[in-house]
Write a protein that binds this DNA or RNA. Structure first.
Lengths: 299, 299
DNA sequence: ATAATAGTGTCTTTCAGACAGTATAGT
DNA sequence: ACTATACTGTCTGAAAGACACTATTAT
């Protein structure tokens, strides 16, 4: 085949390609792992309250040394970013075979003090009965924190060309000994022709990087997806009562639901078993399983 | 301050940090730009049909030389990934001030033949009357393609532990002279304990990289977001008739809607003006504008 | 007059929310 | 008997879907 000198073949091009010619950002993955766990019970006949929990790791190295952060790390050259998220989670927490979905990729220039680091975040859900956080192999501290969020301010500035919406949210993360806080601001600007949505961390205490932002984004995704998909079952053990399932919804949505309506809506997603949960000083509850077979969808 | 030798301060750590110690992937952005345009009319009293269009660029370089691809490019060290998406779009298409939202980050190891490249994809929407694709500055060919998608197969394999769902979709992209096709498979596996969702390109003709996958993902996002947000107005000019708005919905959702119901649902989002669209051989239609002020939300 | 689009009124069905009421264990 | 939870039936109102009907222009 004849070709002139500046017309090279694709193979020649690829053989001569040097990725190191250009300066590149580093890429990490960070995973927001949620679980719902029981609080201790005081009264023998009362059901245990449920709490939404998130998994954090105490940083042993700079930057943010001795502060807490999401499990994650750098993406290697021979693994996809999904695989990187799985690997880091397994390495750092000994947790695997769990629900994992990509959330968002955070690309601000200064979000990491070390160097330019872009981070793809993931959402993971795990049933608390499957937990097996062995004494972590390389002396890293891994711990579940309860998470609560509160909208502390909502502002609307209206101009003739549109409006600016601002929402400030405070996050509180607690374990037995520590309380971490983070304040996040979401700004939607519709006063120009292009609609822009910004998310910023205003302050963080005890939590490294922009992880407060990522955690809140994960919480929003969980709240919205639980309403129109069946991801909640990833937080449930094999068998559960409908009240337990309802409590998981309530603690995530942060609101009480009416049992009759909840049962009507979830009836298609569950299968009754012959087992019951009893010995609790009140009417025993039937145990159900997630009805995989009858629910096809791509959500 | 006294500290032993392996206890360095955060500042010392950062000063000594060398990002180049580790091999890193490259990072690009790719943008799926949609617009809705009128087809030519044959009958003076018929309204023009609308078509969903997508913006592609003809590659002048290897790999995939002379094939079409999404506008995009490498992220620079001093810009956020959002800024990179804006910049590339502006450079390659002379289009700016448009709606832009992040879609998904594609991280398979072999998705780019040059080297390891991870790509964050974006969705952009532009009103076709604002278009200004000047003769592109560096002789790049930029062109709008009409886009249609068809689900060509849906398989359900049921096992005792769950099911595997498979959906095959074919994409057809057409301009005046060329037809590009791409076939995409989405697989959801619920037979193991962890639910996994895969997306793969089976074949592409005329379209480079895994861009068929990204385009279909963008189309899905557009279809779903148009139902519960007001992003459709980013595709509309300042003033429009309700039938025009309805046609935009119909061409995106690929289904006919009933006018009475459509008007009821959209009534809160539009403001009537005193103007009408006439001279069309039938009853003139009132012109409306997007009612920004009365709609606050963070979607 | 006609063809084509513009626009409205209303019946039906579906679904979410509210709430009252019944059922059943352990102590 | 009492307490706490388990579970069901049904009313109501809001929203989505279907469809018939009227209105208005250029040719």
């Amino acid at each position: 085949m004849i070709h002139n000198d500046n017309e090279i073949s694709e193979q020649e091009f690829l053989d001569n390609y040097d990725a190191n010619k250009y300066e590149r950002p580093s890429l990490t993955v960070d995973t927001v792992v949620f679980s719902v766990m029981d609080k201790d019970i005081d009264n023998y006949r009362k059901l245990p309250e449920k709490e939404l929990k998130i998994l954090l790791i105490k940083r042993g190295e700079h930057p943010f040394k001795n502060m807490w952060a999401l499990p994650g790390g750098f993406v290697k050259m021979d693994e996809s970013i999904d695989e990187a998220a799985y690997r880091e989670l397994k390495e750092e927490t000994n947790v695997d075979k769990i629900y994992l979905e990509q959330l968002y990729t955070w690309g601000k220039v200064d979000r990491d003090p070390r160097t330019r680091v872009i981070s793809s975040s993931y959402l993971a859900l795990i049933d608390s009965t499957k937990l097996d956080l062995k004494a972590s192999h390389d002396a890293m501290e891994v711990c579940w924190f309860s998470i609560t969020s509160n909208v502390i301010e909502e502002k609307k500035k209206i101009s003739k060309d549109g409006y600016i919406l601002e929402k400030r949210v405070s996050l509180e993360l607690k374990n037995d000994t520590e309380t971490l806080t983070s304040e996040v601001v979401i700004t939607k600007d519709v006063s120009n022709n292009d609609i822009s949505l910004r998310r910023d961390v205003i302050e963080s205490r005890g939590l490294g990087f922009d992880h407060g932002l990522i955690i809140y984004y994960g919480l929003e995704r969980l709240k919205s997806k639980i309403e129109y998909t069946d991801i909640a079952f990833n937080l449930m053990p094999l068998e559960f009562t409908l009240t337990e399932l309802q409590n998981v919804y309530e603690v995530i949505l942060n609101q009480k639901l009416l049992a009759a309506n909840f049962r009507r809506k979830t009836s298609g997603y569950v299968l009754e078993t012959d087992n019951v949960r009893k010995d609790a000083g009140h009417r025993p509850a039937k145990l159900f399983r997630y009805n995989k077979q009858d629910n096809y969808n791509f959500y």
